[in-house]
Computed example of a mutant assay.
Amino acid sequence: MTWNVYLSGEIHTDWREQIIKGCEAKDLNIVFTSAVTDHDSSDAAGDGLGAESNNFWRDHKSAKVNAIRIQKLIKQCDMAVIRFGDQYKQWNAAFDAGYCAALDKPYITLHSEEIVHPLKEVDASAKAWATSPDQIVEILDYLLNQK
């Protein structure tokens, strides 16, 4: 069985790589997808539509272009992992969680205990809450290998 897992959220740590390497070590048959994680490239996604003197409109265009990719990948995934880091507010990740919930796509949140309260509604719709990439790998191993 091959699974398609969408990795959403925080881009400033190597959590994605930890999950991917952990799944490779267990020889799990998973295709991982994600939004563009290079911050500068993501911010410039709409620049081909014309220069903007106001950053609001530049961000607006780029968000819409990025949404094309994100929505397609979430619709295609079997489940998503949505990471919320402690340093920055990942509003986009919260939006991805809501999109998953609206599509009835299962998702697992990944975040520290310190931000449980602000994420209570996001976690309430999640199928699980993990605090480490290793926990995500264990869940994926279970989902793919248990009979």
Rank of each mutant, 00 (worst) to 15 (best):
N4E: 02
S8L: 10
G9E: 01
E24S: 06
A25C: 10
A25L: 10
D27S: 01
L28A: 01
T33R: 08
T33M: 03
V36K: 07
V36L: 08
V36C: 10
D40Y: 14
S41D: 12
S41I: 15
S42E: 14
G46Y: 00
D47A: 03
G48H: 06
L49H: 12
E52R: 12
F56D: 07
W57C: 02
W57K: 03
R58T: 06
R58H: 05
K64V: 07
K64R: 11
V65F: 00
A67S: 10
I68Q: 15
I70E: 10
Q76C: 13
D78V: 04
V81F: 02
G85V: 07
D86E: 15
Q90P: 03
A93S: 10
A97K: 03
G98R: 04
Y99S: 01
C100G: 04
C100D: 06
L103Y: 02
L103S: 08
D104W: 11
D104V: 06
K105Y: 07
Y107K: 05
I108D: 01
T109S: 06
T109M: 12
H111E: 06
E114G: 15
I115L: 01
V116N: 06
P118N: 03
K120M: 13
K127I: 15
W129R: 11
T131D: 01
S132F: 03
P133K: 00
D134N: 13
Q135C: 00
I136M: 06
V137Q: 04
V137W: 07
V137Y: 09
V137M: 11
V137T: 02
E138T: 03
I139T: 04
I139W: 14
Y142E: 10
L143D: 04
L144E: 06
Q146W: 02
